[in-house]
Write a protein that binds this DNA or RNA. Sequence first.
DNA 1: GGATGTGAATGCATTCACAGCA
DNA 2: TGCTGTGAATGCATTCACATCC
Lengths: 225, 225
Amino acid sequence: MENFRPEGVPNPAVRRLSLYLRQLEAFKRQDQRTISSKQLGDSLALTDAQVRKDLAYFGQFGHPGIGYRVDDLIARVKHILGTDKIWNVLLVGAGNLGLALMAYKGFENQGFRIVAVFDSDPGKVNTRRGAFVIQPLGELQPTIWKLGIRLGIIAVPADSAQAIADQLVATGIQGILNFAPVSLSVPSHVGVSAVDLAVQLEQLSFLVNIHTTAQQRVPARDAST
Amino acid sequence: MENFRPEGVPNPAVRRLSLYLRQLEAFKRQDQRTISSKQLGDSLALTDAQVRKDLAYFGQFGHPGIGYRVDDLIARVKHILGTDKIWNVLLVGAGNLGLALMAYKGFENQGFRIVAVFDSDPGKVNTRRGAFVIQPLGELQPTIWKLGIRLGIIAVPADSAQAIADQLVATGIQGILNFAPVSLSVPSHVGVSAVDLAVQLEQLSFLVNIHTTAQQRVPARDAST
DNA sequence: GGATGTGAATGCATTCACAGCA
DNA sequence: TGCTGTGAATGCATTCACATCC
């Protein structure tokens, strides 16, 4: 089979694919063999039409009158996402967040494995953290080549993140998961995905403000308008 | 000033507001007094029109011929996002991730302060972790009321996340930042924002796959189609 | 009957392009 | 001239609704 050249695939659809996968695995654990777009949609607060259209962007996986075979759909979606094989991933930054990521068990069965950890702090280099020996940044290039690493996680402070990103790009890394609160600039052939706590919390604070405003609220001093 | 009833405000616009805020603060640190929609846009790979429209959803903050006054715009955006005052936040889950969150210095100056930490593990309850004494879940209700907490962070394993969410909702929490890899179901008046590592990594793996596929690739065994 | 896959219709979000102001 | 704010135009994404198949 040729792989997927997502001609007209909406980006949100790809994102939802991950969610479908997780639900499917949950349904599988409950020994459900087959599932309808309605069931799958309900479990994620999406419409059945949305689910069908999303899946249909990638092929015809369902059976009219029956639904989707759970096992089959899991395999299909994993193949689409590229997680039907293990990805070697590197981590830069062995601070608190880095430690948490190293300890996180969830990666393995999602198809990702952290295989190398780097830090710029000479005091950390060559020490052991959990199962990993922290390497100096100078080792990036050889390690990436030796282990065939294509994805990197950046968990360093904001002010060094762009420099690290540049180094990763220079070594040929193709995708970066960024935890630092800056927007990285990278060439267009490199994928970047960001986890940004400030943004997420601000989103919530905005939402909650709306709500409390909508019902009742402290007198509210003026501030122009 | 009346607060914002976002009548026709696109959701993505709210998300970008957070990004604008961060860039503005960076520009301010470099002593830039005024900024155009073009400059701000370029720094985030967005168009000038996008920036202007986003800001215009909330009011008229700019000065034709000049641009936006940096200080002023920072204040305005903070007010819109609700981060012009400090939010007390609680954290449930004192595992590796929870520890990293407790240690994270970035919250404070973004307007968020973790003021209480809970865990269900009796072995952790009443022990100190950094500056915090872990409390049992039974203390949720009284603590939330006493400290006026409206936002909660869930950093527990997937299988207990929904139960914790239910408890938070029951105590009147209005917004939840969820790190557990499940989609929580909560009443519509409660805001949820999710940080999902699996989803983010799968997004990258999808992107990278496209790329490598687009150029050259291992022979690729068949698999139907 | 029960479910998929999919064009057509609707609804959002982004971009254009320009009037108007400093 | 330089830049904002904004209707109008375009382009995406979601939803509808139905022909089709088990």
